[in-house]
Design a protein around this nucleic acid. Structure first.
Lengths: 99, 99
DNA sequence: CCAATTAATGAATATGTATTCATGTATTTG
DNA sequence: CAAATACATGAATACATATTCATTAATTGG
């Protein structure tokens, strides 16, 4: 397995973003359908401010993308590949429980 | 996508481990074949101590497994699923470069 | 325009963690 | 057994980052 230094860092930065439970929950919550920030706040039980901060990071890494609709902003997982990888790993975690 | 709180945390802890470039490099370096700690030190250009510390974390999460042979200890990626996910994402990073 | 709602931001803090340095442990060889 | 090699560990430090609090910006409805 070969990998350049740049790519290594790039990759680890994505993992780092997925490595916080709150942020991971946020990403998962808008993996299948668009969710408003308010929705995400409710689902994750995190403060509005914290959710916004995390969303900014996820946006910055292009892991989610925003769509403004009136005063609400809807977020959705940006990349299908990320979604699939996530689903795979979630399934993996589920399987482990069944052993 | 449903996921329990426990699993969310478990999953984010795995990502957190992959989220450090040095540790990710270490894991990648022993993804296909066993590598001694010394080999890993050479490949990653990190200090022996740092490599050992990271290996302990990776061991703790069962991401790698050790095998002692004389004075050397060989490490290898523990789980095929992790390896596959990693390969997928590395391939993904490669593809992005070609766009 | 004003008030209300929804989201984003900046600064401050508290906590976590990557890295180093010095040292300790296991194993082999002479 | 002594010395050398290969790896692990603990404490200390430096750095990063998650979270909160207070405030600001954007948008809509009255």
């Amino acid at each position: 397995m070969k990998i350049e230094q740049d790519q290594l860092i790039e990759l680890s930065e994505v993992f780092k973003l997925l490595g916080d439970p709150t942020r991971l929950a946020i990403l998962i919550s808008c993996m299948e359908e668009e969710k408003s920030v308010g929705d995400i706040v409710l689902m994750t039980q995190a403060s509005q401010s914290l959710v916004s901060h995390h969303l900014r990071l996820l946006r910055g890494a292009r892991l989610v993308r925003p769509r403004r609709a009136g005063r609400q902003v809807f977020y959705k997982a940006h990349d299908a590949h990320i979604s699939c990888t996530l689903k795979d790993m979630i399934d993996h975690v589920h399987e482990e429980d069944e052993l």
